[in-house]
Simulated scan of single mutants.
Amino acid sequence: MEPQEGRLFVVGTPIGNLDDLSPRAAAAFEVADAVCCEDTRVTSKLLAHLGLSRSLVRCDENVIAARAPQLVDRMLAGEVLAYASDAGMPGVSDPGQVLVDAARSAGVPVEVIPGPTACITALVATGISCEHFFFEGFLPRKHGERVRRLRRLAAIPGALLFYESPHRAEDSLAAIAEVFPERDAALCRELTKLHEEVLRASSPELLQIVRERGEMRGEMVLVVAPPSEAELERHEAALAAGGAANADVNPDDLLAADIAEALAAGESANAIAKRLSQKYSRKKRDVYALVLEAQGASA
């Protein structure tokens, strides 16, 4: 790659296995006057792997907005800068998009060097249908907010992808099992590394597996299977009946529909109450009373 005046290289880097670094990525680092990055320690190891030594500029989420103007000035003055996240594609759950936006707004040429992406690697590895998918990034930290967000995503007709840290994986899976108890889910960790692992089961079963294993190491991707046709029809019916903006607005209709469907399938009242009380964050005895009421009405 020939040196080029005044531009920004946005460089995709390996998510684990350094052999996944592309020749174009290596060439971009070689011609760069400086490398902007989230963590200088991580990027210095990557450059050392290539036998390169470059000036590093820390550009994590805390400082990138403040540093972007001076970095743009450097590129306008003729410097070539490269930006790399700690792993994967910059801009995907990563602060690099701030620098890209600033460069483009100033007329600085931006060239993206594609590389691995953890969310897509995980989706393919799970075997879950990937014809349609939605990348959410990180879920909220508080349980109630996680559940509300997941319910808002329930009507999306595709797989759901989430990034998660090891110490929060169990909590996120608990929320997923509560909102999507009938869907398969998968936990992918250490992707492309020696101890790569993909765990897939129904969401309640996966939660139990993770609880029994205890905290696991490595950054993780959680994948939730798409909704069934029956689930989508329930959401559409709720929207049509209530004129709501989303299925989360009128959960009583969804609960009643779920109870009717479960009774028709021959599920016991106690099992229905246990499962749906978790799904809708209701007291089990209250849901049990609704199940008995529905049984009486259909008798």
Rank of each mutant, 00 (worst) to 15 (best):
I64T: 11
P251A: 00
P109K: 13
A245D: 06
Y83P: 15
M89S: 03
G137Q: 07
S44M: 14
D286H: 10
E136K: 01
C59Q: 14
P69E: 15
L150W: 04
V42K: 12
K279I: 00
V179C: 08
N250S: 05
A48M: 06
I259R: 03
R211H: 06
L207S: 13
Y163T: 07
D60K: 01
R58C: 13
Q208H: 00
S202F: 11
D258I: 13
D171G: 07
V100S: 03
L8H: 02
R141L: 01
R148W: 03
L21D: 00
V198K: 05
F133N: 04
I128C: 00
P95G: 06
E267N: 10
P140E: 01
A240L: 14
P114F: 01
V249Y: 06
A177Y: 04
S44G: 15
G91P: 03
L207W: 10
K279D: 06
S105P: 09
R151D: 12
V249S: 09
L232R: 14
A32H: 10
L290Q: 08
L123N: 06
V57P: 02
A237P: 01
E212Y: 02
D60L: 08
L207Y: 15
S105V: 15
R285T: 11
G88P: 11
E30V: 14
G296P: 12
V98F: 04
D39F: 06
A244R: 14
M220N: 04
E212F: 07
L150H: 01
L206P: 07
F29E: 09
E164H: 09
D39Y: 02
A265F: 08
A27L: 11
